[in-house]
Each structure stands twice: as structure tokens, then as C-alpha cells.
Amino acid sequence: MKKTDYLKMIFVLIAAVLTMTGLYMAFVWAPPHGTHIFDLDQEHKDVYLAEPISDELIEAFNSSEEHINLSYNATIKQSLNQNGRLWLIKDGDSTFWIMDSDTELKVFAENMGDVQRIFYFHVASAWVAYLAFIITFIGSLAYLKTNKMKYDILAFSSAEIGIVFCTAAIITGGLWAKGTWGEFWRWEDRKLFMTLVLWLVFMAYLALRSNSDPGKARARLSAVFSIIGCMCIPLSFAANRIWTQSHPTVIASESGSLQTSMVFTLITAVFAFSFLYGAILLTKMDVENMREELEEIKQEIGDLDG
């Protein structure tokens, strides 16, 4: 067995253990609903949970017509009563939150339901897609600098895996959106749009390669193409941070603070997919090296015949 085979086995084992742990955490350990970002005791003293829920409160909620569409399952209505203007938030079937009108409305991922559990492996897929495209970028740069075919193989293998995970991220994101926003896609969301552009660019990269003859010319052309294509990565990653978008920003943002259990689940899923990516990359590179070897043997036979 080669050295890379041992490495591949280690990666597969780690990925398997982490995936099982991640799935257990996502389905059992982490909370089924989205996170409440208001801390009732410390940060927002003017927000309180109405318990027990009175009939008057339910009536006030039901009779109130003005409401805010947050795109999430929680329903928020504005109501007037003897205390002034209040926000009434119906969280699921049994909980009411009451918030003073002056309180900044910061409701994120409020009670998304079970569809929220897609989040862990959706983010992990997107992370691996970005990682794979970055490796493609590095491989392409290294190829242009050194002219060694092993870097071209690295870049191509990584791009193909990136496409698989990017596809998974786009589809699962659409399913999450259907469950929470009520629609699969929002064209006005630049995050979604840039990710689609990134996917299309790398699909074009794969099409370009499959329609060119193997060799240095193809390697050079695809390296240049992928370097230009990789410009979409920062745009796709940062779109929801630069512009206010429907797509939630949950990492490195104040508005999307996650519960500790959710953070650990997400980290486990990200590591699981990163190791899986490592194992697939090594296998794919093996396949591409074998393809090169096959071409060389064919050429040798041709020379012998000639």
C-alpha cells in the first residue's frame, strides 16, 4: 500500500466517526428549533415571556392585523393595549413573547422547525465547496509557476469535488428556504446569486477541460480560467455580510449568535466534511494519475507500432 492509501484510510475513518457524531448531534442533541437571540435576563429586560398565556393575550394577538413578515415561522404582530405599543410574538404553538416597541427587533432563525437541522450539513457542504475551489486556485497558480502536471491534477480534482459539494449546498439551501421563506429561491438575494455564478463558472471549467485534448495547453488554459473564476469565492462568501440579504449570517456576526450545542454540531459537521473532502481528493487524484499513466502507455504502444 502507498503512503497516500494510509492517509486516505485515516481520513475516511475520522470522517466516518465525525459524521456519525455530527448526525447524532444534529438530530438528537442540538435543539430542534432556531435560536432565540434575546437573552431575557440580561440583554433585553424589556422583553419577557408571557406565562401563563392569558386568553386576553391570545385574543389581542388574533385580533391584531398588522404584522411583520419575518419569513420565519414565528409570527409577530404589533398590538396596542393599555401599556402602549407592544410586539406580540407567537413562537410555535405554546409560547408568547412580549416586547416593548422600543426594543430593537432582532429575531433570527426564530422557530424554524425541523428544517433548521439542514443547516449543519448545508454549511459544511458550502465550506467544503469554498475550500475545494481555493485548493483549485492554489493548484492552478502552482501549475502556472512550475508547469508540473501534478498541480493541474490537484486543481482539476479539487474543482470536481467542489462542484459536488456546491450542488449539495445549493439544493439543501433551497430546501431550507422553502421550509422557512416559503420559496426555493430568491433572485434578489446576492449571496444565492453569487453562489450560483460560482457553480456555473466551475461547471464551465469542467466543460472546458472535458472538451479539450489532454496536455500542457489544456492545463494552462484551465489554470487561467479557474484563477479568474475563483474571484467569485470572496464575493459569494461575503455577499450577505456586505449587503443586507435574506440569507442568514450566522458565523462571525452579532445577529446570528448560535447556542453552544449548535456551534459544536456545526463544527463537527464541518470537520467531518473536511476529512471526507481530503479522502475523496486523494482518491480522485489517484484516478487522474492513473489516467495520465494510461495515456503514456497508449503513446508508448503507438510509438512501438510506429
Binding site: V115, T172, L175, W176
Partner: peptide, 8 residues
């Protein structure tokens, strides 16, 4: 919702 999760 749960169906979307399983499909995902």
C-alpha cells in the same frame, strides 16, 4: 418541514 429535512 421534516420532509424537507429528510430530502436535504
Amino acid at each position: 418541514d421534516i420532509n424537507y429535512m429528510y430530502i436535504g
